[in-house]
Write a protein that binds this DNA or RNA. Sequence first.
DNA 1: CCGGCGTATGTTACCGATAACATTACACGA
DNA 2: TCGTGTAATGTTATCGGTAACATACGCCGG
Lengths: 357, 357
Amino acid sequence: MPDRTRAPLAMPQAAAQIADVAATAGRAKPTAVKITDVAALAGVAPMTVSRVLNTPDRVSGPTAARVRAAIEQLGYMPNLIAGGLSSRRSRMIAAIVPTIASPMFNAPMQTFTDAMGVAGYHVMLALSGYTEDSEDAQIRAVLARRPDGLLLTGARRSPAIRRLLHDSGLPVVEIWDTAPEPTDILVGFDHAEVGGAVADFFVAGGHTHFAILSARDPRAAARRQGFVDRIAHHGLTLSAERVLPAPSSIEDGRQGLRDIAASLAPRTALFGSSDLVAFGALVEAKLHGIDVPGQLAVCGFGDFEISRGNVPAFTTVRVDGAEIGRVAAEKLLARIQGNTAPERVLVPFEIIARDTT
Amino acid sequence: MPDRTRAPLAMPQAAAQIADVAATAGRAKPTAVKITDVAALAGVAPMTVSRVLNTPDRVSGPTAARVRAAIEQLGYMPNLIAGGLSSRRSRMIAAIVPTIASPMFNAPMQTFTDAMGVAGYHVMLALSGYTEDSEDAQIRAVLARRPDGLLLTGARRSPAIRRLLHDSGLPVVEIWDTAPEPTDILVGFDHAEVGGAVADFFVAGGHTHFAILSARDPRAAARRQGFVDRIAHHGLTLSAERVLPAPSSIEDGRQGLRDIAASLAPRTALFGSSDLVAFGALVEAKLHGIDVPGQLAVCGFGDFEISRGNVPAFTTVRVDGAEIGRVAAEKLLARIQGNTAPERVLVPFEIIARDTT
DNA sequence: CCGGCGTATGTTACCGATAACATTACACGA
DNA sequence: TCGTGTAATGTTATCGGTAACATACGCCGG
């Protein structure tokens, strides 16, 4: 192995600069203004330019002004990839959600992205669908980008992934669900409790017959289980049930109600796993001449726009998805910047009684 | 603080390696396995590891196997930030949309993100709201991350931004609108034509009185203008109109109908700027005892789930947002990878006549 | 008038990968 | 036998910033 160690230092300063200019001219894009160009124009060292951009209070007024003028004149735009490599902070968050084509997840994503943007972070979006394997793969893939933090949906992770996340020491916030031992930060609520609360609500309304239309996804399943358990606790049982695909649609709700319509008791309380499902059930109930809420009481989940915009406005469970996104951003930022401990924030949910119960 | 005063270049090779190991242990995260670690374990040069990952066909079978085993054993995960800096390809796309809290934009975003993911690209999401200034700022901010491509919504850009984008040579795809001179690639449709087509559709149905509820956003405004112009072309005029906030909601549609209900002609054709608005109008019409479609014909825009899930299912303009996202991804990838020319893809729209016209 | 200290700025050595070029090993035809 | 082309692998020099350390300078009290 030849000893070339000293080669770079052997080059005279001027020659190095010429080589540098040639390389820039020959290969890079024309508009590739870099920090050295700004520094040269302003008559300062590159580090000073970096300071003007990142820690302005460590630079004197006049110098900062000259640098800013140079930045302006050249249209300089810092390269965050280079900065990220050097500083080991990418100023980027990866978010993995099942889908954004549902108010369930696009509300928190919207506020999360906004709040992160204000703090100077960008959000990288990955969609996992509803399979755990896909989520695992997405997590591994985004980690290669060295995000400063991670937003995940739900709180059920495979042990391998939990270990990976734990070892990496990356701040993680899990939203929209809860678990006894979250990976790191958690901002969510207990879906089984939601189901239980809806059951109590129905029972308090004098109901004795229950039905449920529930999507085939882990959180909807938890709500269903909570509902069924609480009914059992009251000494009652489910009289009709249908499992729907995830994510489920209005049409799924309609189909679900059609399927169970024949077997409906004279007075039944129906819990839908989302407001879309509940709306579908309401639409179909009307077609079947089923009186709501006389013969059929309906409660949805999510407090989507449609639940209060529809006539009849329907009862639903309100969870403030936007708030979850905001809080998730806030807690994650705190964890990234300071050294706060893992935290488990339970956001409230609330049954909004409207005209269908 | 460790003593780092001795210049690494003065050190003998072995000593330098020891120092390097020490530095890694002392400063970086425990799991910071890098390409040199893998190379050392596999007994090859780092470049060979890089080839195994990026151009496997340039590495012999046995060597590749050894490298893969080392990667597996160490749990190596390449650092795409470093790779991006070196190769000047970030394998990342920035997407700027007004909001994802609407099927209008989350449908294309979903398919775009999926398609990009398959091709090994991640999507960075930025939300611009409905103001041009905000979009400009977002564009400048994301460019600092050196994305390999850009997805923008709409086709109206300030001259400064157009110049910036053009000079940067970055592949750009604009979706969901059209313009005579798009920035680069465009995948969209003509909103004025949509408005015109809806007007023609109504006129063909024998309508002579028209109303419109339209959101205060550039594309909704274009649809409105197309509608109004075509009506005028038929020698007719708008008899009622309401401008709604953007993005507009079911409640906005209800409020809009309430506002114009009094001034409605015996038989009026109403164009809503989205299906949410149209749905709101339908809900309110029923409350007012207005017969649909007898007294009031309604056409929405977007073919959201609710337009066919509702009873009555309502007439709307179908635009395949998912398809726009897919095509945008495909064209953008082609432009990034090959040298295809700018392209302007107009996707079809279609009036879906249902039970409200 | 000098030592010491804080502020503003400069210098150096990386961050972790890859492009471009260099080298080695071998097969094969003249 | 030997040049020569090709496949496989190694070496070097960055990519464009920033952390950490070094230095220059002015100001203060003793």
